[in-house]
Design a binder for these strands. Structure first.
Lengths: 337, 337
DNA sequence: TAAATTTGCGCAATCGTTCCCGACAACGTT
DNA sequence: AACGTTGTCGGGAACGATTGCGCAAATTTA
């Protein structure tokens, strides 16, 4: 059905051998400028493009990188993907995006698929369910370059890039404290994710600074990062049925923020009168809410760019890389009041 | 660095030829059950996976489909992609997502890239800038299967799937009329997109039903579908500087809806007191706005599923397909009041 | 003019896999 | 005993592109 032209077609049409045609296109010196001109003109005319699959087989690289995120319908990730694509395309790499929907099984399948399809490297942000990263270690040990961003694996030694989650969480919590709130709950993703751990640390540090004890019943983990709305609803329900109800919630993620607001609206709890909300989000719709809702914004686009730069450097490195960077970027507290 | 095992490795280890090993794994009859058992056991042990690139080269198919959307950070598209992935993975196809960001140039580059990477088929939703679909016709004529969804090309004969845009637009406009508004403007994407044309028709029909003349100055096209905020801002500014200001706007898209609300907030125009808004959107954050904001919701996930089913049927068809479907799905008017 | 060098191009191998063919046993049939 | 049949398996071509090697012709040098 769909048959692109090959070197052989050109060779036959011009009465040359495939090697000569290849050399003409590849611009080697072992070729007369005359034949080169003829071949180039003809190739241009029929719009010849070398078959990338044949090239991949020969050169054992695909010029493509695999991306693993929890979902693209998340402002942080869609912005990060923007940065990834920008750099990748510029360097001649193709980007294959896969979604885990926070599922460990899906993560394993996707990673396996990407690896077997022969991507040259991997940009990974772990799923909320993932606590065992053995499926990644295996590939990493066998030499597949990978770079983690946002949700990093602590026991795999490679480049990592993340936002200053602790500082961001600290800033957001301090802001709630400064606005007079004292009973601040924390709604977050699964407890083993790097971002959860760091954001919890920032939250704790802020409370401690104000001499407020950290209450375990104020901290609610959603094992699937709020992918299922019932999870978020259950967490909020438990918070609101405490005898000492919180008067603010620090929310640790994009999806959770929206989920949290949805549940509060459903429960007829007014924001920010009854409960003040602040949290990590890269969404711009927050601007539209009547009630002010401050947020911590991560430099998603930049993180995507940097991660991709690092990955391509790994891929194209002639020698095994043994020194790895762990870059941390500052967050920005967007105050809406 | 990263060297997976090959047929040759197995053959050498077992003292067999590659053909025999291949046959054992392929489960042909021309093989003794004994050798088959040995080979299968060994392949299992070392976790052998055939090289998909070599297979692609040989069989001239990649078991992957390319997707072209304007951007993943759009609730309609991210939901549609969910449907696409569900069907594709189930059938053993991989999905490669590319974004045009509503740019014609980017669309051409992405399509070219997907085609040259040898995807088996294409799922296409045109960019707002695209009026000339020659780059797609070329590939289609050469036999590359493609299915259009949402934003379809009218002069390419293949399967198409879209929402009942005219009915949806009609419903939304009628709802604004029923709530007492009479000066209803229309904010929409570029004028050549199929969805723009159909939604405009629905808007016109509703006004006509109420005996209201359609005023050209009430209809504002954003050539990039609101991808640039200035575009939306300019349109709203023009609408609000009319002597006969509109008291409602029917907005024709996801991004435009958010953009429109952002501009209105910036201009300190109250919604829905001064201006009532209704439009196409698959976003769930609309639920969170204090002011009710009805919307037309497209069955995005189902559309993604159906489009993928159709495409795979095209790809796997033994004979050239000449009869094409043009499926239209109903929209849902979500009333928030 | 003959030898030495350069130039231009084709042959064939390679990447990993499949598959058509041919080889060659071990049979059964005549 | 000669021949056909069947069951297994290996050899080698093919998919499309690149590239080292060798060979012939053209050019330069002695």
């Amino acid at each position: 059905m769909f048959e692109p032209t090959t070197l052989k077609d050109i060779a036959k049409a011009l009465g040359l051998s495939t090697s000569t045609v290849s050399r003409a296109l590849r611009d080697t010196h072992e070729i007369s400028s005359e034949t080169k001109k003829i071949v180039l003109a003809y190739a241009e005319k029929i719009n010849y493009k070398p078959n990338p699959i044949a090239l991949s087989l020969k050169e054992r690289r695909t010029k493509s990188i695999g991306v693993l995120v929890s979902e693209v319908a998340n402002h942080y990730f869609s912005q990060a993907i923007g940065g990834i694509e920008a750099i990748a395309y510029d360097r001649g790499y193709h980007v294959i995006i896969t979604q885990t929907h926070e599922s460990y099984e899906r993560e394993k399948i996707n990673i396996q698929h990407l690896a077997s399809r022969g991507v040259d490297g991997l940009l990974v942000s772990l799923s909320a369910e993932t606590s065992d990263t053995n499926h990644l270690s295996l590939l990493h040990d066998r030499g597949l370059p990978m770079v983690f961003f946002d949700r990093v694996a602590k026991d795999i030694e490679t480049h990592k890039i993340s936002a200053n989650n602790e500082q961001g969480a600290y800033d957001a919590t301090i802001q709630l404290l400064e606005s007079g709130r004292r009973k601040i709950a924390h709604l977050t993703s699964s407890d083993h994710l790097s971002i959860s751990i760091e954001r919890l640390a920032g939250y704790t540090a802020a409370l401690t600074k104000y001499g407020i004890p950290v209450q375990p019943e104020y901290i609610k983990h959603c094992p699937h990062g709020g992918m299922f709305q019932e999870e978020t609803e259950q967490a909020i329900r438990e918070l609101m049925s405490l005898t000492d109800k919180p008067d603010a919630i620090f929310v640790a993620g994009d999806r959770l923020s929206i989920g949290c607001l949805t549940v509060l609206k459903k429960f007829n709890i007014s924001v920010p009168e009854e409960i003040s909300i602040s949290g990590f989000s890269n969404s711009d719709v927050l601007d539209l809410f009547k009630s002010p809702l401050s947020s911590v914004r991560q430099p998603a686009y930049e993180m995507g760019c940097m991660a991709t730069e690092m990955l391509i450097k790994l891929i194209e490195s002639k020698y095994p890389v043994t020194e790895f960077e762990n870059r941390v970027l500052d967050t920005e507290l967007v105050i809406r009041a």
